[in-house]
Amino acid sequence: MKYTFPLAAVIALVLIAWIGSNIPGMQYLFGIVIPYLAIATFIIGFCYRVVQWAKSPVPFRIPTTCGQQYSPLPWIKQNKLEAPANTSQVVARMFLEVVLFRSLWRHTKAEIHDGPKLTYESSKWLWLFGLMFHYSFLVVVFRHMRLFLDPVPWFIQVIEFGDGILQIGSPGMYITDATIILGLVFLFGRRLITRNLRYLSLANDYFPLFLIFGIAVTGIMMRFYFRTDVDIVAIKRLAVGLATFQPVIQAEISSLFYIHLFLVSVLLAYFPYSKLMHMGGVFLSPTRNLANDSRMRRHINPWNPDIKPHSYASYEDEFREFMVENDIPVEKELPPKAE
């Protein structure tokens, strides 16, 4: 099965970090060297990838119009979000796409029945759990900033307070701990259960799911269940140290922490080389980020080839006789017939 290798890979990564971090001195590798390499790979790789995209032009204006175009006929009402005619409308469309996953909201599920009869029903689960996963991930990342920032800025504290507002248990449960797991389980489950999806999923679709699952689970385990040697003060000192280029490992920290950190490092390093680049790509998709104004404003294709149509002159040359015979105007009259 296509998920066995990614699963084995993530387990192997866990083992590497587990065994590795128990070797004296290797904590510096897993706690400092690898995270630095990973974040550098992430930032440079991400930018490199985007620049690579940007090196290719967008020769044609090809927005997918999902609504009524702008019309000079005043009673025809333009759908400004789905067929944007200017930049601000494009920005609004992109905003809803990036922030609310608007296209997924349209998702339907098709079925075929006797007849033959096709039915389509609205299916919002992918939208819901997709949104849940992504926002949980975002909040989790923001929350972790409390470990990298000293003093912790107010907005991080606000996010953390909101996430822990249910005040369940001690240490307090975060809502996003539950929702990110829920999201991951759904995203994995549908790949297994939905026929179409099971067939089209690749190993590189499962790997990030398992990896992020591993990150979430080790994080949750550290916080709630295996707290021994997870000294948050030492961890924060290390994290702030990483951010200020003065990293110090001042206490013995549990392997669980190094596993967590290693998996995060792998995710960061893997990011630019994988489909996770959809994070940047979503902003650059020409079917969404262009205005449907190609009859109003000329769009330039930088490599527009020099191609001329089959000329009228040669066309007329070929058919002049017939044209004249049939009273179709011509540019050049027929040569006088050589008697």
């Binding site: 290719s56 098709a110 679709d205 979503v282 079917t287």
Partner: peptide, 24 residues
């Protein structure tokens, strides 16, 4: 064509195989 069409590069790189398109 990769050098000529950004759309091609983006569409090659960004698909997450969520399957939203499958039965469309």
């Amino acid at each position: 064509r990769l050098d000529k069409f950004r759309s091609l590069k983006i569409f090659m790189d960004c698909c997450v195989r969520c399957g939203a398109c499958a039965d469309k």
